[in-house]
Nucleic acid binder design. Structure first.
Length: 270
DNA sequence: CCCTCGCCCTGCTGGC
DNA sequence: TGCCAGCAGGGCGAGG
């Protein structure tokens, strides 16, 4: 499922087809994902030129020369299809560029979203207004985690999924980062030692950066006619590996936290 | 404010 | 082979 590295990889891949390009045509096949598409989406995008691409947390940003930014979220099953051979069932939005490239936003489970936001007011836009620091940015420090975790009794894992604390972490990479930092996912956040938080920040950065690097190589394979953008295989240490051996000699376990699966190793995560 | 829980959606998997 | 329950989960709102 698309998490931050997949969104980053998708944005970089799309940039090659969109940056500097005029949007010649926009087709909407089904006008709602999680929410209805914004009114006037087709009209506002058609004829606009893409000035730059970006990402905030798990949202992709397509900036245009009309001071409007198309903001997309891939939800659980969203992906951009590059030069699809034919339009398929879940290709909800299709963009054709001035030089004839076709890009289709496909989302079977429709947990994704598409919005149009004034570029100047992006940081104040609803979902962005209360977001915490980017996990790959300089604002995410052990000190930031120490301050936001102070006095909190909730387990650390669901807190790391809270976008107000760190923006862009999902279930997979939280499991992986906690494993790498050797922290129990059910540890009370306010009681984690500073030394462990000092391990957690670089662990978060490393799992994300490694996945982006892996996706970067996959994109070259995918960015071909009928190719797909947004997924790549990763070698996770704990996620989806219940019962598998951990490198420490333990066995990967699984339990539910806040209604979703947490994978971890009881032997090396303390 | 803090924390937990349930809902949204649909394709896929596993059990019978 | 066919059917169906269960699972995946980010974001958001409700409720304690």
């Amino acid at each position: 499922m698309p998490e931050l590295p997949e969104v980053e990889t998708t944005v970089r891949g799309l940039a090659r087809y969109l940056e500097g390009e005029r949007i010649a045509r926009v087709a909407v096949n089904r006008p709602d994902l999680r929410r209805p598409f914004p009114p006037g989406l087709v009209q506002e995008l058609t004829g606009a030129r893409v000035t730059a691409m970006g990402r905030r947390a798990k949202y992709g940003l397509i900036h245009t020369d009309r001071d409007r930014t198309m903001v997309f979220h891939l939800g659980m099953s969203g992906r951009w299809r590059i030069e699809p051979e034919r339009i398929e069932k879940h290709d909800h939005l299709v963009i054709e560029t001035g030089s004839g490239h076709v890009l289709a936003l496909n989302d079977a489970r429709r947990f994704g979203s598409v919005d149009l936001v004034d570029t100047g007011g992006l940081e104040q836009w609803g979902p962005f207004a209360t977001m915490g620091p980017e996990p790959l940015g300089e604002a995410l420090t052990p000190r930031h985690l120490q301050r936001t975790f102070a006095g909190r009794f909730a387990p650390v894992k669901p807190l790391l999924l809270d976008q107000r604390i760190v923006a862009g972490l999902g279930n997979i990479y939280v499991c992986e980062a906690l494993h790498r930092a050797r922290i129990r996912p059910d540890r009370e956040a306010g009681r984690i030692a500073p030394a462990a938080l000092a391990r957690l920040v670089p662990a978060i950065r490393a799992v994300l950066a490694e996945s982006i690097a892996a996706g970067g190589s996959t994109i070259r394979d995918y960015a071909q006619p009928s190719g797909e953008l947004g997924y790549f295989a990763s070698s996770w240490q704990v996620y989806g590996r219940e019962g598998d051996p951990c490198a420490c000699g333990g066995t990967v376990a699984r339990f539910a936290q806040g209604g979703r699966s947490t994978f971890w190793c009881p032997k090396c995560q303390k």
